[in-house]
């Protein structure tokens, strides 16, 4: 009976160990990807880890574990392996607050990569973004990739924002809008890069 209990305890302990190893393995793969990306990228990047998320449902932001000591300042663009994540809005010595691109106060000057059609991408607090102010004859179709434009004063030109998943007309009928699925997994980001200009 005692031996059975001891074996059960051992099984529990091994289960925990297995779970820990799985997590470490996943983290290892992620970090290797980040390192490889950093080495290949022409941009000056500082890697950071997400340590906290939005305080409530009315804003979309995260806190990262790097700040002014790592030369991070407000206004810098933040990306991950998939694409644009947001921008730094506040930096302390050892941490920074990053407003994500799906926050409604974000407005990103952007273009459709294929047709160079320009527009303004806004956050909606939801899973998708909205590209506004597209003319009736806008050259945009489902599947198009949207990137930051050179008109943006915050973001470097050419950062991938996401992919067009739907196109519609606004209430007035004068303009069209496009729904954009962000390239970055905004709800589950763990590691990011801050672009140092």
């Amino acid at each position: 009976m005692m031996q059975a209990e001891r074996l059960y305890d051992e099984v529990d302990a091994l289960r925990w160990q297995l779970s820990d190893l799985g997590e470490l393995n996943r983290e290892n793969i992620r970090l290797r990807g980040l390192l490889s990306f950093k080495q290949r990228s022409p941009l000056r990047l500082v890697a950071a880890r997400v340590i906290a998320r939005s305080f409530e449902a009315w804003s979309s932001s995260v806190v990262i574990d790097k700040g002014k000591k790592s030369k991070i300042n407000a206004g810098m663009a933040v990306i991950d392996l998939q694409g644009l994540v947001g921008r730094v809005i506040e930096a302390t010595d050892n941490s920074s607050r990053v407003m994500l691109i799906n926050d409604p106060s974000q407005g990103i000057s952007s273009i459709v990569q294929r047709s160079r059609q320009d527009g303004l991408v806004n956050g909606t607090l939801g899973a998708n973004l909205i590209m506004r102010y597209l003319p009736e004859d806008a050259q945009i179709v489902k599947g198009d990739l949207v990137i930051t434009s050179e008109l943006s004063q915050i973001y470097p030109k050419g950062l991938l924002i996401g992919e067009v998943i739907n196109i519609g007309s606004d209430f007035s009928g004068l303009n069209r809008f496009a729904q954009i699925k962000p390239a970055a997994q905004l709800t589950s980001i763990e590691e990011v890069f801050v672009i140092i200009p």
Partner: peptide, 12 residues
């Protein structure tokens, strides 16, 4: 938030 000029879809 809406008063400060930001747009939040009704559903959200």
């Amino acid at each position: 938030i809406i008063n400060s000029g930001l747009i939040i879809p009704l559903g959200i």
